[in-house]
Amino acid sequence: LSLWEDRWGSDAVEGTLSSRFSGVIRRAYENTGKQAVVLIDEYDKPLLQAILNEPLLEEYRSILKAFYEVLKSSDRYLRFVFLTGVTKFAQVSVFSDLNQLNDISRDYDYNTLCGITKAELIETFTPEIFRLATVEKLTFEETVLSLEKRYDGYHFCEDTAVGLFN
């Protein structure tokens, strides 16, 4: 929040984390005339880390809930909100104030969005794959096959031909 406030400004009356977050979103919109995009990567990580510590889990849940409440109240300033995570925490009411959530994790139109396909792996990481092949004393093709055996095959939707590297 401090970095965003350095860029978009702050207000002394914003004393809570959620009011600061709300202020940043609003000022970003006011300064640019464009709605903000919010990406929350691995929203579930704090909850997973505290899953066996009930007091800490409750504290994290409360903090996250306050942030997510801001997303609803700031709707007019937001173009898009994207949350990623591997676990659905419906039972901890973190998202109870959000409506119109669209879970795309099993949507065929987006089934390769949250992973790396074989084609993307080769296109993006060819130099690294060649280096790994050299270290492992394998050919490029053998290295890709080894990576496929170890990391490929995740499917968000049933009956999809393309597996994702995870």
Rank of each mutant, 00 (worst) to 15 (best):
S146E: 01
A119L: 09
T112N: 12
E54R: 15
K72Y: 11
G85F: 05
G23K: 03
L132G: 00
G15E: 11
S93M: 11
L83C: 15
E142G: 02
G85R: 08
F95D: 03
Y29G: 02
F80T: 07
P46G: 13
L113K: 04
I129F: 05
S2T: 11
W8C: 02
F21T: 04
I40Q: 10
I122S: 04
L164G: 01
V94Q: 06
A28L: 11
Y43S: 07
E148V: 00
G115S: 06
W4R: 00
L78M: 10
W8V: 05
A161G: 07
I51H: 09
T87R: 15
Y68P: 01
D107G: 09
D152R: 03
L98H: 11
E136G: 02
A36V: 14
D41I: 06
T139Y: 02
Y108S: 15
F21N: 03
S93H: 15
E158A: 07
L83T: 14
A50H: 07
Q35L: 08
V92C: 09
T143Q: 04
L121G: 00
E54L: 12
L98K: 13
F67N: 00
Q91D: 09
L138A: 13
Q49P: 00
F156R: 01
V70H: 06
D109A: 14
D11H: 11
W4C: 05
I104M: 12
L1K: 08
L48K: 13
L47D: 05
D103G: 03
S96E: 12
E120W: 01
Y151F: 15
L145T: 12
F140C: 08
N102M: 12
A12L: 05
G23R: 01
D107I: 10
V92N: 10
E123I: 01
R131G: 04
V144I: 07
Y77M: 01
A90V: 10
D41P: 10
A133E: 08
D6T: 14
S146Q: 09
I122H: 04
N53Y: 08
Y77E: 02
E54P: 13
K45Y: 10
S2Q: 09
N31K: 14
N102Q: 14
C114K: 02
T117R: 04
L113R: 06
L39Y: 13
N111T: 04
F156H: 05
F80L: 14
D109K: 12
L1D: 07
R27L: 06
F130A: 00
Q49G: 07
A28M: 14
T160E: 13
L98R: 14
Y43Q: 08
F125R: 00
T160D: 08
E14M: 03
Y60M: 10
T139Q: 03
R20P: 01
E69V: 06
T134R: 12
F82N: 06
F89A: 01
R150A: 05
F140T: 06
S96M: 02
T84D: 12
E30I: 07
G163Q: 03
R27H: 08
S18R: 06
V94S: 10
K118V: 10
V135H: 15
E148K: 07
F125K: 02
N111A: 00
Y77V: 00
S18H: 09
V162W: 01
F95T: 09
E54N: 11
Y108W: 13
N102F: 15
K137V: 07
L3C: 09
A12G: 07
P55L: 02
Q35E: 14
L101T: 11
S18D: 15
Q49M: 15
S10R: 06
Y77N: 06
I116A: 03
G153D: 04
N53G: 01
T134W: 00
G153A: 05
L39H: 12
